[in-house]
Design a protein around this nucleic acid. Structure first.
Lengths: 308, 308
DNA sequence: TAAAAATACTCCATAGGTATTTTAT
DNA sequence: ATAAAATACCTATGGAGTATTTTTA
């Protein structure tokens, strides 16, 4: 019978498409990995790898086996986690993935409280876009994600935490009155600046504006901070999530306007594998996030120009 | 990291509750299995087994880990199957489970045809009740089941093959006219003989008769053959599935009556793990069964007294 | 005292390492 | 010619066996 070790090597080989680099990831020599792959092929009586060309590529069967191997390795991680069993929640290592439009705003508030309440929690943080995070979650490289819901994959369980409303950030000299409620037409009448492709926030903003052809912005920005600089410089307007206000609106050249109902917003929440053995940790983490952010309010009225 | 071997040993230990017998099942010595279990406990840093009393019993954590281990072992089997990949369907070993009220009637017709068409198919047959078969299917000990649908577990995929109608078998001297259509009142007016608890056919017959308190039969029989003997002897009546007619009704002291619409029946079909790598085999098997049974008809009119 | 599991110890298969060859571009 | 994977060969670890001890009911 084949071994989990062989599956780990195959998984690495499938992801790298290269014996040497796969071996490096597994911290073994290239011949060691080669041997195990070859042994696995003997066990399964099937050719898994095309070694013909310079580029190592899996066969049809190899890809299917690798897919199942990845699932088993994920299950193995969950099994190991489940053995921690009775351990109180939020102790030991926990791998958390966060999207870039949440991380810089949520973490500074939540992390200190988290470490205060759960001193032996060893949090490992990864910031990346939803797509990447979901892959890593599936692989078992991450235990839980903090991102915008809903997901279109049914394989994960989710826990909505709070609604994060979007506000319209405009240059201070914009003719819109300070206390006005903005609407989609106000956005359409201005140059809309958004994050580059791949950020879910971009899609959510576009969905609200119904501006499908929103490549009108030339290049997409790579961070909200950059976008706010552009807004402050009068280059255009943007939809800013509420959580980012405190951190990003400290420039007198920007004013914020609430939208008319129904206000655009995103649902922020957690996601984890349905098979995860750390659901209790996820629930506890969700609790801390909600409580911490609630305690951080009330923030100054968002409809007023930033002034400090 | 732990190994698949350790999971196999734990799985056996969980099922036997006894190191010695678990070791025997795994074809290793008791110390070898003991060692691996102990090594697994070290790996997981958790106590999995209560060794206090004479009876070996898993801890809470141990049971959870064993449950996940069983899932992984099942996935491992499916992975190995999937590597057979391009192999044409219905070749190699296939483990088929069948319920007792189908096996003696379906197999004699289907097996010869199956071996004729797929000469290198190595079919392993297990006859047992639905509950047992589902457990073995889950474990991966079986690849596919032939039984009555629907299942109440959503974890398996199913393929309905045909409807198997029930007929009322009564002693030849019963006053009911030979061509009559029977109804539930006819059944209620007679002593109903059924299989013992655990046979799905019993439940299906009772569901039709709406006779919840049907322990009126004293002891349940263990086979349809026995029941038909009892009917022939004038001891009572029974609901006989159509597939069993040819084999079980060869006694002149029995006559069969169709039921009035809606006739009671059961849906016969196949079931397999959603993760199975042998779905093509299942589909092919289903095709052979349907075609073979269809070819076996037309049978003599069921409403006539058996006479041969 | 008897049954069951753990320990002691020996052996060998196997995973892994380094050095080298083969292969394909 | 070069990069990548396979092969050769050696070492060490770990899994398995048998014999024995410990434990507990």
């Amino acid at each position: 019978m084949f071994t989990l070790r062989q599956l780990r090597y195959l998984d690495a080989l499938a992801r790298h498409g290269h014996f040497g680099r796969a071996a490096e990831e597994c911290s073994v020599s290239q011949p060691a990995l080669s041997m195990q792959i070859s042994e696995l092929e003997n066990e399964l009586k099937a050719k898994l790898v095309e070694r013909q060309q310079g580029a190592t590529v899996l066969t049809e069967v190899g890809r299917e086996v690798a897919r199942r191997a990845a699932d088993m390795l994920s299950a193995a991680r969950d099994l190991a986690d489940s053995a921690r069993g009775g351990a109180r929640p939020l102790s030991g290592p926990l791998h958390l993935g966060i999207i870039p439009t949440l991380a810089p705003y949520v973490l500074p508030r939540v992390l200190p409280e988290l470490q205060r309440r759960y001193s032996d929690l060893r949090l490992e943080l990864i910031e990346s876009q939803t797509r990447t995070l979901l892959n890593e979650l599936r692989r078992g490289a991450l235990d839980v994600l903090l991102l915008a819901l809903p997901l279109d994959t049914p394989e994960f369980e989710t826990l909505p935490l709070f609604e994060d409303h979007f506000l319209l950030a405009v240059p201070a000299d914009d003719p819109l009155p300070e206390r006005a409620r903005a609407c989609t037409r106000d956005v359409a009448a201005r140059r809309l600046i958004l994050l580059e492709e791949g950020h879910c926030l971009r899609d959510q903003a576009l969905a609200y504006c119904a501006q499908r052809n929103a490549t009108n912005t030339g290049l997409g920005a790579t961070s909200l901070a950059t976008i706010m600089q552009m807004v402050a410089s009068g280059y255009g307007v943007t939809l800013l999530p509420e959580v980012a206000i405190d951190a990003e609106v400290r420039d007198e050249r920007i004013k914020l306007l609430r939208f008319a109902e129904p206000q655009p917003c995103r649902t922020v929440g957690l996601a984890w594998r349905s098979t995860s053995a750390r659901k209790a940790d996820c629930a506890a983490l969700g609790r801390v996030i909600v409580e911490t952010l609630r305690a951080a309010k009330p923030r100054r009225p968002a409809s007023l120009r930033a002034a400090r």
